[in-house]
Design a binder for these strands. Sequence first.
DNA 1: CCATCTATGTGCAAACTGCATATAGATAAT
DNA 2: ATTATCTATATGCAGTTTGCACATAGATGG
Lengths: 132, 132
Amino acid sequence: MPGGRGWGGGRGCRRGINRFLEPCLLLLLHGGESHGYQLLENLSRFGFGDAPADSSTVYRILRSLEEKDFVTSRWTEGDSGPARRVYSLSGKGDRYLQMWVEDLRETDRILHRFFSEYSEHMELHCESDGKN
Amino acid sequence: MPGGRGWGGGRGCRRGINRFLEPCLLLLLHGGESHGYQLLENLSRFGFGDAPADSSTVYRILRSLEEKDFVTSRWTEGDSGPARRVYSLSGKGDRYLQMWVEDLRETDRILHRFFSEYSEHMELHCESDGKN
DNA sequence: CCATCTATGTGCAAACTGCATATAGATAAT
DNA sequence: ATTATCTATATGCAGTTTGCACATAGATGG
């Protein structure tokens, strides 16, 4: 099962768009520097169905973005709570976001191609074919 | 890099929608029984950007679909060439396709949520901010 | 006989992800 | 003061998916 909504997903069970958290984080950082925990909360704006995004995945993506120089980070002492690693988007990261957007537009086209194939096909099979 | 179009992808480099070949194959089989090689050719109808879908992936997905009783298969001697393993969609597979479609609609919603967040954000940043 | 096309498959390594768990400072409750 | 909870970051692990390379084998044409 594709691990999607309603068909029981296990550990490595994936669904939806690959690495989709990455462009979401990049977009959030385009709005200004932020730290992992805050980004995690702001990710809810993108409404991932039900699940509120796994924190470990978020932190790992942020570190991998830094490895590739798409973001930079520095430690700061907040007004309260433990120290935070604050990330900022770089110019390279900005361009990377643009590539992601193009890629997602292509994904969107592919998705709609599927939907149109689907409805076109289902028009010809509108009688409920009682398959066993 | 997300392995997408234009940023160099390696072996385990994934992109786009997870297991997307699965609903495509199910939809093709909904149109009538077929074998792997033929399905592989018909997949071009879904226009996966440039790459024409990897054959090993297609064959593996077909076997995994049979394992879960979403399709059945039988061997046939064609008019020409080697024997073919011909797959047929089962009723269970038909329902599985419906779940896939719902899942893809949700993916579509999430994708458009991203796009609207993106354009909404970019409206406020229309001046080209020369990030280094 | 050899190259090529048709057709199906395995091996492998890289990559992604969700869950569990670890760590630790700060804050609130008892 | 001790304990629990919240904030914040991170690692380990195992399951899953994927693309590339490669293997196998029958059929067909030169």
